[in-house]
């Protein structure tokens, strides 16, 4: 069997420079969780179907389970661990708490990152746009209603404080 090639990669993770030695057949998800200890990003299916592993690469929501690790060399990656500014929660996080948007919470990190990507692109989405924005994230517990409500609420709050918290 072929040996996997190894690659020294550098990228920014939640704004900080990081580097890692990765194997060709590692996924970004594995590197984040196993190598860098960023376990906030979840593994649910490893086939792009559940959205639990959603992170932002150069601002776009993507499935970390489908990305070969060497591909992220030079990219900017945001994970759930970087959503709050220190102790100050992002308006989305606050809204998720206030609206009781999560039950088991396992879909939460991916859901929140999809929601962030959406609001970064469309600050005042319609409910339809919100539903489309999170259509790649499966939640088995909540039935989505409160998640949608929370994202709408966060978008209103962010509009009120003039886009702060993006």
């Amino acid at each position: 069997m072929t040996e996997a090639s190894t690659h020294h990669i550098r990228f920014t993770l939640n704004g900080s420079e990081v580097s890692a030695d990765v194997k060709a057949n590692d996924t970004l998800l594995n590197v984040l969780r196993e190598q860098l200890g960023y376990t906030g990003t979840k593994r649910g299916c490893e086939t792009g179907e559940c959205g639990a592993c959603t992170v932002l690469v150069d601002g776009k929501a993507v499935n970390a389970c489908l990305i070969l690790a060497p591909k992220v060399d030079g990219r900017a990656i945001q994970t759930i661990e970087g959503l709050a500014k220190g102790a100050e929660l992002h308006p989305l996080q606050k809204a998720f708490i206030e609206e009781g948007a999560l039950q088991c919470g396992f879909c939460g990190p991916g859901m929140l990152m999809s929601a962030k990507a959406l609001l970064d692109e469309i600050p005042n989405p319609t409910e339809d746009q919100v539903r489309r924005g999170i259509s790649g994230n499966i939640c088995r517990c909540t039935g989505y209603a409160k998640i949608v409500k929370a994202i709408m609420k966060a978008s209103r709050q962010m509009a009120r404080v003039g886009g702060e918290g993006a």
């Binding site: 069997m1 072929t2 040996e3 996997a4 090639s5 690659h7 194997k23 060709a24 057949n25 996924t27 070969l68 060497p70 591909k71």
Partner: peptide, 9 residues
């Protein structure tokens, strides 16, 4: 996933 060599021309 089996091992392979990754090339990025």
């Amino acid at each position: 996933m089996r091992p392979f060599v990754y090339l990025s021309p």
